[in-house]
C-alpha cells in the first residue's frame, strides 16, 4: 500500500506558562529574550498523531512545516529527533507582523507548493495566542474539509479518515474524506520522546539561516549528507500576492496593549488555628456570605 503524505504544522512559541517577574519590560512590551522558546505543546500532540499513522501505514512520510525566524529551525530538529522525516522552515521578513489570517495565507501558499498532501495535522492552538484559528483558516484557503478538537486519528485508509473528537461536553466519532486538515487537542496522547538514533543522525541538521549565523562550517558535512539540510523557503519560493502578506495582509490591528498588574489590596491574615477559623466562620455567617 502507498503511504500517506502528512504535513504537521508547528510553531515555536515563548513558554508563556512559566512567565516570571522579568517577562514584561517597563514599557509594557514582552521581554522575549528571557522566555524560553519551545515547541508549541499541542503541536507535539499533533506530531504524535502523525507518527502513529507512520507506524501504522508503511511508506508514510511526515514533514514538519513551521513559519518563523531562523531560530525556529530548532523545532524542526526536535521533530526529526522524534521521528519526522523532514521539515521546511518558512522564513522571510515579508511575513513579519502577520495576524492569523496572513499567517494562514502564507502557510497555505507553501502547502500548495508542496505537492499532493493527504493530511495536514496541527495543534489546536498555540500558547502565545490561544486563538485556534490557523488550522481552520488554512483548511478554508486550501478548500480542504477540517476536523478540529481531535483526540485520536483512529484510521486513515482508502481515502477515508476516522477521528475521535473531544469537545467540552463529550466526544464525537466523525468520518471524512482525504485530503483533510486535522487539529489536535492537548487531551491526545503525549508525543514520544527523542529517539537516540535520530538524535545522532540529525544533530547537525541546519537551515540555511542557522548556518549563516553559526561559527562552524557545515558545508562539507551537508554536501556529504543532504538529509542534514533543513529546507528553508522564502517568499520567493512560493506564489503569493504581496497585499495578503504580513502587516498589510492582516485585517486585525493591535490598537493598544496593557501590561497586567496585580492590584494589591489589604488582606486579613489568619493563622491556621481553630480560634482563627472560628472567627472567620462567624464573620462569614454574620455577613451572610455563607448560610
Amino acid at each position: 500500500m502507498k503511504g500517506l503524505k502528512i504535513v504537521v504544522l508547528a510553531k515555536q512559541v515563548p513558554d508563556t506558562r512559566n512567565v516570571g517577574k522579568d517577562a514584561m519590560k517597563a514599557d509594557g512590551t514582552v521581554n522575549r529574550a528571557v522566555l524560553p522558546a519551545i515547541f508549541n505543546p499541542e503541536d507535539l500532540n499533533a506530531l504524535e498523531q502523525a507518527l502513529r499513522l507512520k507506524d501504522k501505514y508503511a511508506g508514510t512520510e511526515v514533514t514538519l512545516l513551521t513559519m518563523g525566524p531562523g531560530r525556529a529551525a530548532e523545532i524542526i530538529r526536535e521533530g526529526l529527533y522524534r521521528g519526522a522525516d523532514n521539515g521546511i522552515l518558512l522564513s522571510d521578513r515579508a511575513f513579519a507582523g502577520s495576524d492569523t489570517l496572513a499567517t494562514s495565507y502564507a502557510l497555505s501558499c507553501t502547502l500548495k507548493k508542496m505537492g499532493k498532501i493527504d493530511i495536514i495535522i496541527a495543534g489546536r492552538q498555540a500558547i502565545d495566542g490561544d486563538t485556534a484559528q490557523v488550522g481552520p483558516q488554512v483548511a478554508e484557503k486550501l478548500g480542504f474539509p477540517q476536523i478540529t478538537y481531535a483526540e485520536d486519528i483512529v484510521s486513515a485508509e482508502k481515502g477515508k479518515i476516522v477521528i475521535k473528537r473531544r469537545l467540552e461536553r463529550g466526544i464525537e466519532i466523525v468520518e471524512g474524506t482525504l485530503p483533510m486538515v486535522v487539529t489536535v487537542n492537548a487531551s491526545a496522547p503525549e508525543c514520544r520522546p527523542r529517539n537516540a538514533k535520530y538524535v545522532m543522525k540529525y544533530k547537525h541538521a541546519r537551515a540555511v539561516s542557522e548556518m549563516q549565523d553559526a561559527s562552524e562550517d557545515y558545508t562539507l558535512l551537508h554536501n556529504n549528507r543532504p538529509y542534514l539540510n533543513i529546507g528553508e523557503w522564502s517568499v520567493n519560493d512560493i506564489e503569493t500576492k504581496a497585499e495578503e502578506l504580513g502587516l498589510t495582509g492582516s485585517p486585525t490591528k493591535v490598537k493598544a496593549i496593557e501590561n497586567v498588574v496585580f492590584q494589591a489590596k489589604e488582606a486579613k491574615v489568619l493563622e491556621p488555628t481553630d480560634a482563627d477559623m472560628g472567627e472567620l466562620m462567624k464573620e462569614l455567617i454574620a455577613n451572610h456570605t455563607i448560610g
Binding site: 496585580f262 492590584q263 494589591a264 489590596k265 488582606a267 486579613k268 491574615v269 489568619l270 493563622e271 491556621p272 488555628t273 481553630d274 482563627d276 477559623m277 472560628g278 472567620l280 466562620m281 462567624k282 455567617i285 455563607i290
Partner: peptide, 30 residues
C-alpha cells in the same frame, strides 16, 4: 503566593490541616 494579592483573607497553612478546621468551626457556629 500571588493569589494573596486578590484575597480578603489570607490563611497561611496546609490544606489538610485548614479545611477540616473550617468544617468543624462552621458546624459549631451553625
Amino acid at each position: 503566593a500571588p493569589i494573596n494579592n486578590f484575597a480578603d483573607y489570607v490563611i497561611t497553612g496546609d490544606i489538610a490541616d485548614v479545611i477540616p478546621k473550617m468544617i468543624k468551626q462552621y458546624k459549631e457556629n451553625t
